[in-house]
Write a protein that binds this DNA or RNA. Structure first.
Lengths: 197, 197
DNA sequence: ACCTGAACACCGTTCAAGT
DNA sequence: ACCTGAACACCGTTCAAGT
C-alpha cells in the first residue's frame, strides 16, 4: 500500500499548454537580463495569464520546475559516473562535476531560476535533490576508498561547491572552469608524506 | 591638476538623514527575509520616501552603498595582510580570505545586497573594487614567489572564490568555513615531485 | 538646498465568466 | 476540467508643493 500523489492524466490541451508555458519560460528567462514577467510568459506561450497560474501556483513554482528538470539531467550524469567510473573513482567524480557545471553554464534560464529564485524554488525539487545526494554519496565513498579523495570531503559538499561555482558563472568575466578546477584540486587527498629522510 | 568629483559638504540635516537611511537599510535588509521595501526604510529612518530617493537614485544604489562600505573593510584587511604577512605569504593571503569571508558572514545585509542586488550594485563600488584588486595582486605575487601558491592562481580569482563562498553562506545548511578551506587547499602549490626512484 | 507624501506605473496574482 | 483577461494589490519611483 504505497502512498503516491494521485496524478490523473491531464487533458491533452492542458498538457500542451503546460509544455508551451515551460518552453516560453525557458526562452524568456534565458534571454532577458532584468527580469521576466508572467504576462510575457503567457503571451509567448499563447495562453492567458490565468492558465499559467493554473499550472504553477506562483512564479517560484514555475522557476522550480525549470530547476527540477535540470536536476533530472544532473542525476542521469551522476548515475553514469557511478556505473562507469569504477576504474578511476576520483576522476569519475571530478568529471561528473565538470559535466554538470557545463550543463548549467549552457542553461541561462535554470541558472537564473536557481540564483534569483530564492529558497522556495528548491521546495519543488525535493525528490530529485535527495536522489542527487544518494548518488553523490556513492561517488564520494568510492573515491574516498581509493585514497584519491581528501577524506574530509563529504557528499553534501558537492551541491555546496556546485552552488559556489554556479554563482560565478555570469559575473565579473570570470572563468568558471578555472574556478571548478581549483575546487577539484582542493578535493584531492594530500599525497602521502614522503618517506622519512 | 587632478579630476575629483566635486562633492561640496552636505547640509548637516541631509548628512544625518543619509546616515539614518543607511542604518535603517542595514537593519531591515539584515532581518527581513523576503524583501525590503523603500517605504519601510524611509519609515524606520524617520524620513519621507522622497528623501531616500534624493540620496540614492534607486534601490540598487542604496544596496550598492552597503556593499561599498563593506569593501572598504575588505581593503583594510587586505592592507594589513600586505603589511604584516611578509614572513608567511601564503598564510597571510589565506587568513585575509578567511577574515573577509567571516566579515560578510556576519553581515546579512551586505550579503543580501551583493547576492540579490544584481550587477548594477557593483557600479557603485568601482573604486574600492580596483583597490581590492591592487592589494590582491600584491598578495598573490608575493605568495607565488614563495612557492607555496599554485602558480596558476591569479589575483582575479580572489573575488571569484569569495563570491562563490559567499553564495553558499546562508543556503542548504552548508558550512562556509569548510567551503573556503577546500578552496584554500586548491590554491596551494602542488608539492615538488618526490625525488626520482 | 532639502524634505514630504500623495499619485503613478509596473507587475504578480486572483476570480468571475466563459467553453 | 480547463481557459480567459479584466481587476486588484503591492511596491518602486516621481514630482508638485512645502520649509
Amino acid at each position: 500500500m504505497t502512498v503516491t500523489t494521485a496524478t490523473r492524466p491531464m487533458r491533452a490541451d492542458a498538457r500542451r499548454n503546460r509544455e508551451s508555458i515551460l518552453a516560453a519560460a525557458r526562452e524568456l528567462f534565458a534571454e532577458s537580463r532584468p527580469d521576466v514577467q508572467i504576462d510575457d510568459v503567457a503571451r509567448v506561450a499563447g495562453v492567458g495569464v490565468g492558465t499559467v497560474y493554473r499550472h504553477f501556483p506562483d512564479k517560484q513554482a514555475l522557476m522550480g520546475e525549470l530547476v527540477r528538470e535540470r536536476f533530472v539531467l544532473f542525476n542521469e550524469r551522476m548515475r553514469t559516473a557511478v556505473e562507469e567510473g569504477e576504474g578511476e573513482p576520483f576522476e569519475a567524480l571530478a568529471q561528473a562535476l565538470r559535466d554538470n557545471a557545463a550543463s548549467v553554464a549552457g542553461d541561462a534560464a535554470t541558472r537564473f531560476a536557481m540564483m534569483s529564485g530564492g529558497e522556495r524554488v528548491f521546495e519543488y525539487v525535493g525528490e530529485e535533490k535527495e536522489e542527487f545526494l544518494r548518488l553523490a554519496r556513492r561517488l564520494v565513498l568510492r573515491a574516498r576508498r581509493s585514497g584519491e579523495l581528501n577524506p574530509r570531503f563529504q557528499a553534501t559538499d558537492i551541491p555546496m561547491v556546485m552552488c559556489g561555482v554556479c554563482a560565478t558563472i555570469d559575473k565579473g568575466g570570470w572563468d568558471w572552469r578555472r574556478h571548478l578546477d581549483l575546487v577539484i584540486e582542493g578535493m584531492r587527498a594530500e599525497p602521502p608524506a614522503p618517506p622519512a629522510g
